[in-house]
Design a protein around this nucleic acid. Sequence first.
DNA 1: ATAGCATGTTGTCAGCATCCACATTAACTG
DNA 2: CAGTTAATGTGGATGCTGACAACATGCTAT
Lengths: 207, 207
Amino acid sequence: MSVAYDVLNDDENYHHGNLRDELIAAAVDVIGREGVAALSLRALARDLDVSHSAPTRHFKNKADLLSAIMEEAYEDMLTTTVDAGYLAGDNPAHRLRAMARACMRWHVDNRALSEVIRNPDVSRTAGRNVKEVLAAFYIHSSRAILGAQGQSRNPERPVEFVYLNMIVSVVGAASVLTDPLYVETLPALDADELIDDMVDHLFPLKD
Amino acid sequence: MSVAYDVLNDDENYHHGNLRDELIAAAVDVIGREGVAALSLRALARDLDVSHSAPTRHFKNKADLLSAIMEEAYEDMLTTTVDAGYLAGDNPAHRLRAMARACMRWHVDNRALSEVIRNPDVSRTAGRNVKEVLAAFYIHSSRAILGAQGQSRNPERPVEFVYLNMIVSVVGAASVLTDPLYVETLPALDADELIDDMVDHLFPLKD
DNA sequence: ATAGCATGTTGTCAGCATCCACATTAACTG
DNA sequence: CAGTTAATGTGGATGCTGACAACATGCTAT
């Protein structure tokens, strides 16, 4: 639906030309630096040298902007983790581990987006799109888990619990690893080591 | 520091008498129903039939109110889980499992408070108090983990990782179990079953 | 050219946080 | 018991914000 203008308008146009995408980019930047609460549509408009209500054309209100960010974030996150699974080779257990690791890494590498999708005030506004993407991801993951069960040390654990535990671990790791309060308070904490340890414990290999 | 008035002022007083505590209670109520973003000091003042700037005497601003809520929440949460450990008897492994289970349950039973302490915009304002409480909890938990290591199936795992994994699991479970988007999207999900399953997996018993 | 549409602008309004001067009460002090 | 002081609450002013409405501009297709 988003129009791609193949022109490069260096002159000062009446039309901004790419406001929607730049609004999202600027918003993500602000969120990364100052948090969701500090986000202001008017401030964004000022930053982009645009009138205070120009954003209305693209996002009905603040919740709508955050909702759009959430949608992009979920798609990016889930394709990233699914792709990581495919890149991990043919061994189902390795694929599953790669998926969990990639998903955690995505959160660490995309602090601002992670903060948005984990914010209840945002997820409350989630539309059908997001829910369908999440449902599809559940199906995909269940298959991956079933495929890997034979190679795990605890093959008898029900798939739903394994999946839930994976989601919980990912969300928890995202919360802990991106929150300065935890990082400051917890024992010396290297994100990669923690992720590896948790993946090992979540999906232990046989050998 | 909080004064306890032993009077019951049924008449309409100039002084409210207990504004601070009632502000917190009303705020928690609003957060539970509409989320942190919907919180407004002026609306709270209206609800309590008090002038719009009365809250200033008790909380310099909104962040200050949320910070106070966070402090109370952390103390309540951590004493609840520590107490659950003591109540679980003498077996160190059972104590540790009881702690983890109680901590997760606290989040489910105190949705609003959980949402506050997991909100980055709030935790960013955490003061020395909160940090000291968290540090003390780490010490307490490390001891519990060390005591339980002999009874677990994986005694060789470093204490810090076990602790981190526990925190991650608790925070993640809180996020997942209290967020309607997850509850709606995930496979049929009973909080108690999930908690038990996760605790079993986190701290497996020998037998 | 011109009608229609997407996009951006200016103007306006209510709600909110924050600050300030002032009012009232409770607690302390001699 | 009287007078002082600190704590608490009031009312108004200011500036920022989100939201809406009416208008302006430029692209595109007929």
